[in-house]
Amino acid sequence: MSAEFDITETLDVQGESCPMPVVKTKNAIDDLGDGDVLEVLATDSGSMSDIDGWAASTGGVELLDQVEGGDVYKHYVRKTE
């Protein structure tokens, strides 16, 4: 699945709850370059909807994929320009 893109960096926010997954994703994306892909590992089930909503209304990011597997929710966000 994730073979379609290369992961530049992984952000681990497992155990953290709202609003930290979105806030830390935004900060991590700020530190990346155009085209880079951030993988976010979260245990907050609200992160599926939250990161989706954040990516949809924020410029400069593209949500590539969201994977729900076991207890961990994985999000893949590309920084665009």
Binding site: P19, V22, V23, T25, K26, W54
Partner: peptide, 11 residues
């Protein structure tokens, strides 16, 4: 505080 930090993340 939650809304402020989240809105900041939205730009």
């Amino acid at each position: 505080l939650i809304l402020a930090s989240t809105a900041a993340a939205f730009g």
